[in-house]
Simulated assay, not measured.
Amino acid sequence: MTASNDFDPEPPEPKLFSARLTPHRSLNRTGFLVLMAFISVVSFVAGVAFWMMGAWPVFGFFSLDVLVIYWAFRINFRRAKATEDIVVTASELRVRRVSHRGHVVEWVLNPLWVQFEQKSHAEFGIERLYLVSRGRRVSIGSFLGPDEKASFAKALMTALQAAKRGPTYNPVA
């Protein structure tokens, strides 16, 4: 007996499936700095050329272009902070979505009752993935490409089928 009131909680259920989905960004920080340096140099040289021709207001517009491009990339990088976590155990399917602003939305569904739906297009492949349970429809993997959605859908379906079979008893382990 211990002096504290602590007790041993049940061990966590084994995860059948766990995935963290994040938006893809092809330009890293170094690439962004190189691109912005290139755009700044080209805009500055072109602006100076126009200034020397007497069209000095054009220099300001070139500077404004650089600022707008920088601002657009900053928004793009901020939106890349969004995540979507999907965890399947034998007793629950948990979807946790964190927006780029830090807002958290979480759904906990029973994997025995969940139906997995996908909306496909003949030419473009899988467009949408949904989890449907008790009248609720949760869209998942919205920022994945069609091939990534197909791979993800296959892995998630396998995990849901394993959850529906139930835990297996292995006396040897």
Score class of each variant (00 low, 15 high):
1 M>I: 07
3 A>H: 10
5 N>Y: 10
5 N>K: 11
5 N>I: 07
8 D>M: 11
9 P>D: 06
10 E>G: 03
10 E>M: 09
11 P>C: 02
11 P>S: 12
12 P>Y: 03
13 E>L: 12
13 E>S: 08
13 E>I: 03
14 P>E: 09
15 K>Y: 02
17 F>W: 05
18 S>N: 09
20 R>I: 13
22 T>V: 14
23 P>M: 04
23 P>Y: 05
25 R>T: 11
28 N>M: 03
33 L>A: 10
34 V>C: 08
36 M>Q: 15
38 F>D: 07
42 V>E: 10
43 S>Y: 08
43 S>M: 05
45 V>Q: 07
45 V>S: 09
48 V>G: 05
53 M>E: 11
54 G>W: 04
55 A>E: 09
59 F>I: 06
60 G>V: 07
62 F>R: 02
62 F>P: 01
63 S>A: 15
64 L>T: 11
64 L>H: 06
65 D>E: 15
66 V>S: 06
66 V>H: 03
67 L>I: 14
71 W>Y: 13
77 F>G: 01
82 A>Y: 02
83 T>Q: 06
83 T>P: 01
83 T>N: 10
85 D>C: 05
88 V>G: 02
88 V>L: 06
89 T>G: 06
89 T>Q: 03
93 L>A: 03
95 V>K: 04
97 R>S: 15
98 V>E: 14
98 V>I: 15
99 S>T: 15
101 R>Q: 10
101 R>F: 11
102 G>R: 07
104 V>A: 05
105 V>R: 15
105 V>A: 13
105 V>K: 15
105 V>S: 14
106 E>V: 06
108 V>C: 08
112 L>P: 03
113 W>R: 10
115 Q>W: 07
117 E>Q: 11
118 Q>S: 10
120 S>G: 11
121 H>N: 15
123 E>I: 15
125 G>C: 03
126 I>H: 01
130 Y>W: 12
131 L>M: 04
132 V>C: 05
136 R>T: 12
136 R>P: 04
139 S>V: 09
140 I>R: 00
143 F>H: 06
143 F>M: 09
145 G>L: 05
149 K>W: 03
154 K>F: 04
154 K>P: 02
155 A>N: 09
155 A>Y: 00
156 L>Y: 00
156 L>N: 00
156 L>G: 00
157 M>R: 13
158 T>D: 11
162 A>C: 00
162 A>E: 10
163 A>V: 04
163 A>R: 01
164 K>E: 00
165 R>C: 08
168 T>C: 04
169 Y>S: 10
